[in-house]
Amino acid sequence: MNKRPLLFAVDNLTYHYLPDKLVLESVTLDVYQGESLAILGANGSGKSTLLKLLSGLIFPIQGQITAFGHELTENALQDPVFLQPFRQKVGFVFQNSDAQLFSATVWDELAFAPLQSGLSPEETTYRVEDVAKLLGIEHLLERPPYRLSGGEKKKVALACVLSVNPEVLFLDEPTNGLDPRTQFWLVEFLMALKQAGKTIITATHDLSIVEDIAERAIVVNENHTLAADGPVLQILSDRKLLLDVNLIHERSHFHVGASRQHG
């Protein structure tokens, strides 16, 4: 696996929003092309923050992040020569769809990223229609995003990131608010993207989907350090670890393979 090119290298990363209240501490992590990685952790452990750091929306207090061979700093991202391809290659589906969707119609929403990345209006139109068909949201194209249901919003949020065809996809709690059928559809969809060679990094505490959408998992502790990093099955079968980081409860019946048996 390690013969694949290195996409992200995180070295001894530390971050806080408010001084004296660390949200991530000494995190070291490598992500290779084509990998599917799950970031596991209890509420408030810092998963969303880690994704924001990796996608260059916020910047480390200490340590460094290298992406596509360049150090990811505020200054580096000022340079359009680095910024534009970086934004095109990295897609981010946010935890809160309401904040993710800001355009007047779904159509504009899907067209936003392709246009920003410099695609022509004709190509963009083509992309928009293609992605809408792929996700089955053609009938929503003329609607304003804020009048959609939670699940529809999630699909649109995914579509508006896919329309620019990113190589790396960050997903923050993608199954939140989805009904079981749509959840299943999403998992299958992510598996197809994985097959197509995309790198997929998912932050979640929905353990039932993890083994399907990821080969590798990292676990963030409640004291905001990395507790584990390894193949997904190994991590999911380590009951003591999951208990220690408060991901499962002593009496919860979670076990590996659950989703296969019941899904």
Binding site: L57, Q84, R87, Q100, F102, A113, V161
Partner: peptide, 15 residues
């Protein structure tokens, strides 16, 4: 953040 992540650099293009 969501605009930044999708390549917003201060100018909005539209069709």
């Amino acid at each position: 953040f969501s605009m930044l992540a999708r390549g917003y650099t201060g100018e909005i293009r539209s069709v």
